Deep mutational scan, measured.
Amino acid sequence: MQRVNMIMAESPGLITICLLGYLLSAECTVFLDHENANKILNRPKRYNSGKLEEFVQGNLERECMEEKCSFEEAREVFENTERTTEFWKQYVDGDQCESNPCLNGGSCKDDINSYECWCPFGFEGKNCELDVTCNIKNGRCEQFCKNSADNKVVCSCTEGYRLAENQKSCEPAVPFPCGRVSVSQTSKLTRAETVFPDVDYVNSTEAETILDNITQSTQSFNDFTRVVGGEDAKPGQFPWQVVLNGKVDAFCGGSIVNEKWIVTAAHCVETGVKITVVAGEHNIEETEHTEQKRNVIRIIPHHNYNAAINKYNHDIALLELDEPLVLNSYVTPICIADKEYTNIFLKFGSGYVSGWGRVFHKGRSALVLQYLRVPLVDRATCLRSTKFTIYNNMFCAGFHEGGRDSCQGDSGGPHVTEVEGTSFLTGIISWGEECAMKGKYGIYTKVSRYVNWIKEKTKLT
C-alpha cells in the first residue's frame, strides 16, 4: 500500500490518463441519441435557420407576430419608411378606419389613436360632414345658397324668414311668412316636400332668348283662358290664391305678392273693366268669414305684352289694390325667389296649380277651390304637342294621358313649387288646347323671366 501511494504521488498524470480511459469505455446513459432527441424537440425550422439574422431580410411573422416588435424591426421587413409607417399605425392600436367614419364618399386613412378623412370636392370637416359648395344638395341650405369668396357655403332665406341657429334652416321672422300653410287642420295635408338634388348652379339658368321682337298675326285659340281631375282644397291650404270678379264672377285667378299687390295673367284683364279681388276665398257660393274683398285701382301688364300681336306672350300683369290686405292664416303671400332659384325650383319637376275653373272641358265651374299636382314636361315634348308657338318664356306641365289639367277660369292662378315646406311661385296658368285632352298640356308663363320686374313694381313704400 505504501508503494502504491508513492507511485500516485510521483505520477499524477498517469492516474488522470487511467481515469479518462475508464470513462470513455463506459456506456453513456444520461444523453439520448440524435434521433430520439429530435422526437422530443420537434420544432419547425425557421426561415433563416442556421444563418445569422443580421444578414437576412426581415420576416413579418418572425419579427412582429411571434413577439412584439419595434418600429426598427418592422422597418427591416418593409425596407421602406412609408410602408412601415402605414403598417405601424394599425399594428400599434388597430384600424381606426374600420367603422368607416368618413361621410359623403370620403376616404379614410388610419393613424395612431386617430384617423384622417380625405374629402371629395365640396366637403370638409373631420368626417367630411361639412358642405362647402352650393353645387351639392344646395349646400344643405333649406332655401338659398351662395358661395363666399373663400368658396364656403353661405345660406340665406327669402323675405319674412331668418336663418336658424344651425345656419342652414329657415324659420319665420314674421307672423305670416310667405308660402307657408298655417291653418292647423290643413298642415297635415301639406304636399310632399321637395329635397334639393345635386345641381350645376353655374349652368342652372337656361341660355334662352326671349323672342321679344317676333311679330306674329293673332292666333285663334280655343278655350285658351284655361282644375280638371283635381281635388277639393281645404280652407287655408292655398292662402296665396285669390279669385278675380268682373263682368262675371271667378273669371280668373291670381296670387298675393304682398298686402297691396296681386300677380295674374295679362290676358285676364281689360282696361276700363272694374275688377274686384277676393282673398281668403274657399267656396265661392258661401260666406265663410275668411274672405277679404278689395278693388283694383291700377293694372300693370308687362311692358312687352301686346294682345294685338299675341294674347299669351309675356302673359303676366300686376294688380294694385285700393287697401292693403290683412295677412292671416287664410290670406298669405306666395314666396318669389330670384331668377336663378325660381328656375331651379321649376326644374324640380312638379308643381301645384289651383283655381275655381271648370271641372271638365266646357263644363261647370268649381264651387270649392280645386288643386292638382302636375309634372313638368320637357321642352321637346311640349313643342311636338301643339302647332302653336311655345315661346321661351312659357313652359308645359300636365299629363300625356289627359284627364287632369287646369281649365277655363283658372287662368292667372299660381303654379307653385314647394321647397322644404315653403311654396314659391314658378308659373302662372296661361293657356292650353281644350282641357285635359290626351297628348295636350297646360301652358304656363315662366315666372323666372319676370321676377325682377315683379319685385321692382310691387315694392311697398
Rank of each mutant, 00 (worst) to 15 (best):
residue 210 I to S: 14
residue 352 Y to C: 06
residue 108 C to T: 00
residue 399 F to P: 14
residue 389 T to P: 14
residue 154 V to T: 09
residue 424 F to C: 01
residue 327 L to M: 12
residue 401 E to Q: 12
residue 259 E to G: 03
residue 259 E to I: 05
residue 323 E to N: 12
residue 46 R to Y: 10
residue 96 Q to M: 06
residue 227 V to T: 13
residue 213 N to T: 07
residue 223 D to W: 07
residue 359 V to M: 15
residue 441 Y to N: 03
residue 201 Y to M: 11
residue 190 T to C: 05
residue 285 E to F: 11
residue 282 H to W: 12
residue 121 F to P: 15
residue 46 R to I: 11
residue 365 S to Q: 14
residue 280 G to T: 00
residue 221 F to S: 12
residue 40 I to L: 12
residue 342 T to Y: 02
residue 379 R to T: 13
residue 170 C to Q: 00
residue 423 S to H: 12
residue 44 P to F: 06
residue 302 H to P: 02
residue 368 V to D: 04
residue 383 L to T: 15
residue 293 K to C: 05
residue 346 L to K: 03
residue 212 D to K: 09
residue 240 W to Q: 00
residue 338 D to F: 03
residue 452 N to R: 13
residue 12 P to Y: 14
residue 112 I to D: 06
residue 254 G to Y: 00
residue 403 G to E: 13
residue 255 S to A: 05
residue 439 G to N: 11
residue 50 G to V: 10
residue 94 G to F: 04
residue 361 H to T: 12
residue 460 L to E: 12
residue 319 L to I: 07
residue 277 V to Y: 01
residue 401 E to T: 12
residue 242 V to N: 01
residue 154 V to C: 05
residue 272 G to E: 07
residue 268 C to M: 01
residue 188 K to Y: 13
residue 115 Y to G: 02
residue 5 N to I: 13
residue 242 V to E: 02
residue 131 D to C: 06
residue 342 T to M: 03
residue 194 T to D: 12
residue 112 I to E: 08
residue 69 C to S: 04
residue 160 G to F: 02
residue 433 E to P: 11
residue 190 T to H: 13
residue 144 F to W: 02
residue 332 T to P: 01
residue 87 F to W: 15
residue 387 K to S: 06
residue 294 R to P: 00
residue 451 V to I: 08
residue 160 G to E: 03
residue 110 D to G: 05
residue 238 F to Y: 03
residue 174 V to A: 09
residue 128 C to S: 00
residue 329 S to F: 05
residue 457 K to G: 06
residue 239 P to D: 00
residue 297 I to R: 10
residue 216 Q to S: 13
residue 30 V to L: 14
residue 415 H to W: 02
residue 367 L to W: 13
residue 235 P to H: 07
residue 307 A to L: 07
residue 330 Y to P: 01
residue 388 F to E: 11
residue 384 R to W: 04
residue 89 K to A: 10
residue 61 E to R: 15
residue 236 G to P: 04
residue 26 A to W: 02
residue 412 G to P: 12
residue 245 N to H: 13
residue 61 E to V: 15
residue 108 C to L: 01
residue 383 L to V: 08
residue 106 G to H: 01
residue 81 T to N: 11
residue 49 S to V: 12
residue 368 V to H: 13
residue 244 L to V: 07
residue 136 I to H: 15
residue 251 F to Q: 08
residue 217 S to P: 12
residue 385 S to V: 13
residue 309 I to C: 06
residue 121 F to Q: 15
residue 130 L to S: 11
residue 124 E to V: 05
residue 265 A to I: 01
residue 129 E to P: 02
residue 41 L to K: 14
residue 266 A to G: 04
residue 389 T to S: 07
residue 75 R to A: 15
residue 255 S to H: 02
residue 279 A to S: 03
residue 461 T to D: 14
residue 200 D to H: 06
residue 56 V to T: 15
residue 353 V to H: 04
residue 158 T to W: 02
residue 54 E to N: 07
residue 266 A to M: 04
residue 216 Q to H: 11
residue 141 C to A: 00
residue 177 P to I: 01
residue 150 D to Q: 09
residue 58 G to L: 07
residue 441 Y to S: 03
residue 146 K to D: 12
residue 419 V to K: 04
residue 388 F to N: 10
residue 106 G to E: 00
residue 370 Q to N: 10
residue 221 F to I: 12
residue 409 G to N: 13
residue 163 L to H: 01
residue 197 P to C: 04
residue 326 V to T: 09
residue 243 V to W: 10
residue 361 H to S: 12
residue 118 W to S: 15
residue 273 V to K: 13
residue 116 E to L: 11
residue 244 L to C: 02
residue 40 I to H: 15
residue 411 S to I: 14
residue 226 R to G: 12
residue 369 L to Y: 11
residue 265 A to G: 04
residue 120 P to W: 02
residue 345 F to Q: 02
residue 356 W to Q: 04
residue 299 I to D: 03
residue 108 C to F: 00
residue 458 T to Q: 03
residue 27 E to N: 07
residue 279 A to I: 00
residue 237 Q to C: 04
residue 445 T to W: 01
residue 365 S to E: 15
residue 342 T to L: 04
residue 91 Y to D: 10
residue 54 E to F: 07
residue 444 Y to Q: 01
residue 261 W to F: 08
residue 319 L to T: 01
residue 390 I to F: 10
residue 65 M to K: 15
residue 137 K to P: 04
residue 160 G to Q: 03
residue 313 N to V: 10
residue 381 T to I: 13
residue 460 L to H: 12
residue 386 T to I: 12
residue 359 V to Y: 12
residue 149 A to N: 11
residue 213 N to R: 12
residue 365 S to Y: 12
residue 107 S to A: 11
residue 211 L to Q: 13
residue 85 T to M: 06
residue 5 N to C: 11
residue 53 E to F: 05
residue 430 S to Y: 02
residue 328 N to G: 08
residue 180 R to I: 04
residue 377 V to G: 02
residue 442 G to A: 14
residue 394 M to D: 01
residue 197 P to F: 11
residue 147 N to C: 05
residue 320 E to C: 02
residue 248 V to F: 08
residue 260 K to N: 06
residue 106 G to A: 06
residue 66 E to N: 08
residue 122 G to L: 03
residue 188 K to R: 08
residue 364 R to I: 08
residue 168 K to H: 12
residue 460 L to W: 12
residue 40 I to Y: 11
residue 61 E to K: 15
residue 318 L to Y: 01
residue 451 V to P: 01
residue 218 T to H: 08
residue 236 G to H: 09
residue 275 I to K: 01
residue 406 S to N: 14
residue 189 L to N: 13
residue 217 S to N: 13
residue 393 N to H: 11
residue 441 Y to M: 10
residue 201 Y to F: 12
residue 86 E to S: 15
residue 68 K to I: 09
residue 115 Y to F: 07
residue 239 P to I: 01
residue 3 R to V: 14
residue 330 Y to T: 03
residue 178 C to L: 01
residue 151 N to G: 10
residue 6 M to N: 10
residue 154 V to A: 11
residue 214 I to W: 08
residue 69 C to K: 03
residue 405 D to L: 14
residue 267 H to E: 02
residue 68 K to V: 10
residue 27 E to Q: 14
residue 116 E to A: 10
residue 316 I to F: 01
residue 220 S to I: 12
